[in-house]
């Protein structure tokens, strides 16, 4: 089963990097948000992999927390997007530079 552990770690790294680059690459804020979810998933994969390989329930518990936080984040973030879209008629990240002010 060692191959599965190594494979999972490498897969998680790959997905994590893909998500990271997606954040920098995409312009649609929702797409960026989905890339964040990809990164979270990669992290989850590592947590669960180690939890299973070590027989540790803690990893699974952390996984549950990550999922909860992701859910909360998605709820608030998407509500924000709706708000921003109504104000600016766009949610493209490069057109929003309100953080400058």
């Amino acid at each position: 089963m060692t191959y599965m552990i190594h494979g999972n770690l490498i897969l998680a790294m790959a997905i994590f990097t893909i998500g990271m680059l997606g954040i920098l690459w995409k312009r649609n804020a929702i797409a960026i948000f989905m890339c964040v979810e990809l990164m979270l998933n990669a992290a989850n994969l590592v947590f669960v992999t180690f939890a299973q390989s070590l027989g540790q329930a803690r990893g699974v518990a952390v996984f549950l927390f990550v999922i909860t936080v992701a859910a909360a984040e998605a709820a608030v973030g998407l509500a924000l997007f709706i708000k921003v879209f109504n104000d600016k008629q766009t949610i493209e990240a490069d057109r929003l530079d309100m953080l400058q002010h």
């Binding site: 709820a75 509500a79 709706i82």
Partner: peptide, 15 residues
């Protein structure tokens, strides 16, 4: 989670 629910409702309500 509760805060997130309330926040989401408040933020998106009117729209």
């Amino acid at each position: 989670l509760l805060i997130a629910i309330v926040g989401a409702v408040v933020l998106a309500r009117r729209q």
